[in-house]
Design a protein around this nucleic acid. Sequence first.
RNA 1: GGCGCAGUAGUUCAGUUGGUUAGAAUGCCAGCCUGUCACGCUGGAGGUCGUGGGUUCGAACCCCAUCUGCGUCGCCA
Length: 592
Amino acid sequence: MNRTHYCGEVNGKQNNGEAVTLCGWIQRRRDHGGLIFIDLRDRTGLVQLVIDPDIAGDYFVLGEKARPEYVIQVTGKVSLRPEGQENPNLATGDIEIYITEMEILNEAKTPPFLIEDNVDCDENVRLKYRYLDLRRPELQKNMKLRHDLTMKIRNYLDKSGFWEIETPMLTQNTPEGARCFLVPSRVHQGEFYALPQSPQLLKQMLMISGMDKYFQIVRCFRDEDLRADRQPEFTQLDIEMSFVNREDIMSLMENMMAEIYRDLMGVEIKTPFLRLTYADAMERFGSDKPDLRFGMELKDISDIAKESNFKVFAANVEKGGVVKGINVKGGEHFSRRELDDLTKYAGIFGAKGMAWMVVIGGEDKVKSPIAKFFTSEQIDAILERLSAEKGDVLMFISDNYETTCNVLGNLRNEIAKRENLIDPNENNFLWVVDFPMFEYDDEEQRYAAKHHPFTSPMDEDLDKLESHPDEVRAKAYDMILNGVELGGGSIRIHRSEVQSKVFGLLGLSKEDAIENFGFLLNALQFGTPPHGGIAFGIDRMVMLMTQRKSIRDVIAFPKTQSAACLTTNAPGAVAPKQLRELGLELRKKDEE
RNA sequence: GGCGCAGUAGUUCAGUUGGUUAGAAUGCCAGCCUGUCACGCUGGAGGUCGUGGGUUCGAACCCCAUCUGCGUCGCCA
């Protein structure tokens, strides 16, 4: 092969008159009988080839044989196009290449869909033929950006003194957290490795080893249900540092993001990012990953509602619940049907109902099914609390604190989407900090770690660890971009006795703690430096940078919602011999 | 596990109240065509209506089950 140029890089200014050799795929062939045009494609773009029988000679018949997606190599002369024949839609549209030699390197079956951007094609088909889908310029561009991003990250962390260290994929299963993928051991029959959900404990042990600053761009696995932004295997930027506090890590990371966005997106990002406590984020935005590209903050009207004659509200506040509302500016255009629809939407997140008021001004002030339960003074107070003006619509949810915030947080996002309140080109970064250490798991009837059980409690809350675990805050932080959690981390527990205590609070008996995490508790006793870290979802990051709605668009070979790979047909059955070697036997379906 | 949407030609879709031989566009194949760039013109081939069952004289259409994909809640330390 003696390719001299890529298709998209041939250039009228530099290459005019030059003989070039190009390789690529045929995008399209336009056969005029006596003259054939071919658009040749490689990962850099398209260029037009001209096959003129007077110049191409015997190669003309190859042009007649050529079909879309055939792989060809051509040699020809770069020429400026005749006056008026330039194609402004093509980067190389000012030139074309007169073929003097041509070879069909490989023929191709007709592809099931057209290889070009914005093809409307069932995702089933696209995933089955993923290698063809990946030929589309858009997906190639996404892969390139992903490459640029990881190169940038490696470069930034290298110059900041980090070492990239690999941790094992075949590792120990631990309880807590997501479901693991298990790998049966042949040598140790009846025992299993687990694929890592994250290298958390291993990177902490690297700190004990004195590696000081570690990072890894690493595949992680979680056997949980999928979403548009969730895959069972995903790539994480994993970071851990010794002798640092929260602020050290956060500033290093926001500088990294600023550099990434400046160099890859041409966007200046202001640092430091806004820091919002978890409590404030929930109170004001109803979410621990608030989208701050628009307002519509949640307002508490429990005190007013409590005095009203609206029993649903008053009774709820009486038994410890709250009433909160949002103001949809100029929302009076919502029809009754749309309001019903939003009520239904609120129901998805557990709301038992949604009350609303349309602000109409005048004597009645508001139009609302619940207006009659409020005095004129109470209505005034509500309007003032929510800064309401004529034309606004107020929506209220009443439930326990968590549900109320969560429902309104989701409503807030949904309405912003419907009302077009979001500038898609804005990049709004922030940190959410001071997460609660624990959350109560109703199903398991015990506390569970909100972040993970290795997160350090805040020093000032240490004495509440046993008396009021629900009030203990953690040295944890999440980086949020446009309402999406990009990454999260924490300062870790570096003292064995604190770690034991936390395990105890999580309902782990001493024996269980030793059985599952004994290696960590042991290691913590051999001189563990204070340390902390963070992990970012690389896939999500690329998804946001490319403004895609699905993480699948930035992963070369993604899985479907049922965790299958349509390209390779994984997962698949295995031969009985393989099972025997592993000491495994499959239960028959009807024995379940 | 729950809720919702979709499945008809290679692809994207239409298909009326259940009624003749299931259509269109595009792609594909063949012929013609020397300035196209979504080339054009003429002709042609192409269907397990996701699958299984049921209702009916008759089902792409109605009913039940099931599979696949997508979105979402739960779940995701």
